[in-house]
């Protein structure tokens, strides 16, 4: 349940109602930003941000650093294996 998809805010359409156009792979839709704007994030500053879109609302601002850290961790898991393989390989010869 709770289908959510990452999209990028491309344009603020209504500052008062906090509405913006978000784009997902070339598909645009007007969504509501109420849940992701606060003193630190003015509505104007949201353009370019990636958000998690659920039923017409941006429910979370995607944290690029955290995403990169997760991917880095997954990448590192593979690296360790390759090193081990290399070590095993060299041990056998």
């Amino acid at each position: 349940m709770c289908l959510g998809i990452p999209g990028q805010i491309v344009e603020i359409t209504n500052t008062a109602d906090k509405l913006a156009k978000v784009e997902v792979a070339g598909v645009k839709r007007e969504i509501n930003l109420v849940c992701i704007v606060d003193e630190d994030h003015s509505i104007e500053s949201c353009v370019g941000d990636w958000v998690l879109v659920h039923v017409g609302f941006a429910m979370s601002r995607i944290d690029a650093a955290e995403a990169a850290a997760t991917l880095e961790l997954l990448h590192a898991l593979g690296e360790v294996d390759e090193e081990l393989d290399a070590m095993r390989g060299s041990g056998q010869t």
Binding site: V34, C35, I36, S60, I62, D63, A67, T70
Partner: peptide
């Protein structure tokens, strides 16, 4: 695991609504 989307404290304005 989903730290790119889930902040520990959740979403304040959403919880308020």
């Amino acid at each position: 695991q989903y730290s790119r989307v889930v902040p520990d404290e959740g979403n304040g304005p959403a919880l308020e609504a």
